[in-house]
């Protein structure tokens, strides 16, 4: 098992060569373009693997059969779709060269990867990497710097395309063993653990840095007058933000629709401005 862990330099001893896999990577890019509510990423998946199927199954009836099999429901975090694609290619290749091969195992492996891989993919790309990119990008962009949007784009997409590219080869070389290996060595759990830790810290930091709450009500008269805000900050800085965060979090927990919460925030803001409680 040790020898085959994370080998991204696959051996090409059958029909598929490196340029086929590079092409597979490029064709994985529009994966979500045809995402639909019926079978989700099915067309995207089939379109990516189509040239390889054509190469593996020269007979038209076999090609049509394989293509239709790849049009069944599929869903995957787009950034790592090359991993199940690579695995599928390895299995289709085995299927095309070995008549004893059990064809139904291709779909079984593909579908088994949907849950665990999408889970880790969504939490890493959506919860960690995007939050990092947004944190860095908006801090700069709010000051009007063009570096904001540029860094946002690069911080997200450089790791994205590196992982997407190498995922193709990793998937192909590990074939159907990939998930067993990764799961038994606990790598998946660890990535999830550390990624959500970093993500949470950045979410906490952004909540304090980006949310702007300012109580403008004054207490006292003349020179001794102070605002409610400075009193609150005296307890600990950010107390107002933290309290309002708690209320919003609680509303979500109570299964309130996010659109409804947005409406509540808008109305409360306008009312609080009218009564001169909050200021921008």
């Amino acid at each position: 098992m040790d020898s085959m862990n994370f080998n991204i330099k696959p051996t090409y001893d059958k029909k598929i060569n490196k340029s086929d896999l590079v092409k597979l990577f490029w064709r994985s890019i529009p994966y979500e373009h045809s995402w639909n509510y019926e079978r989700m990423g099915n067309v995207g998946f089939a379109w990516a693997i189509m040239p390889i199927l054509k190469k593996l199954y020269p007979k038209k009836e076999n090609f049509v059969h394989a293509l239709k099999r790849n049009l069944e429901l599929y869903n995957m975090t787009p950034y790592i779709v090359t991993l199940p694609l690579g695995i599928s290619v390895a299995m289709e290749e085995a299927n095309a060269t070995n008549p004893e091969f059990d064809e139904s195992s291709i779909s079984a492996v593909k579908l088994a990867l949907m849950g665990p891989l999408s889970g880790i993919g969504d939490s890493f790309f959506w919860g960690t990497l995007r939050v990092l990119a947004t944190g860095i990008g908006t801090t700069l962009a709010l000051k009007g710097s063009i570096l904001g949007p540029i860094l946002f784009f690069l911080v997200f997409n450089i790791p994205h395309y590196i992982l997407r590219y190498y995922g193709t080869f990793l998937g192909y070389s590990l074939g159907s063993n990939v998930i067993n290996n990764v799961e038994s060595s606990g790598v998946m759990d660890k990535i999830t653990k550390y990624a959500s830790m970093i993500g949470m810290m950045v979410v906490g930091a952004m909540t304090q840095e980006m949310v702007n709450v300012k109580f403008i009500t004054k207490i006292g008269v003349g020179k001794s007058a102070s605002t409610v805000q400075s009193l609150l900050d005296g307890i600990f800085p950010g107390i107002a933000t933290l309290a309002l965060f708690g209320v919003t979090y609680w509303m979500l927990k109570k299964k309130l629709n996010p659109l409804m919460i947005m409406l509540i925030i808008l109305l409360v803001s306008i009312a609080a401005t009218y009564f001169k409680i909050l200021g921008a």
Partner: peptide, 17 residues
Amino acid sequence: GMNVAAGLLPLLGFAML
């Protein structure tokens, strides 16, 4: 009030995250 809301709305996004 919309300016105030612009400061508060990120709360919703962060809470969702």
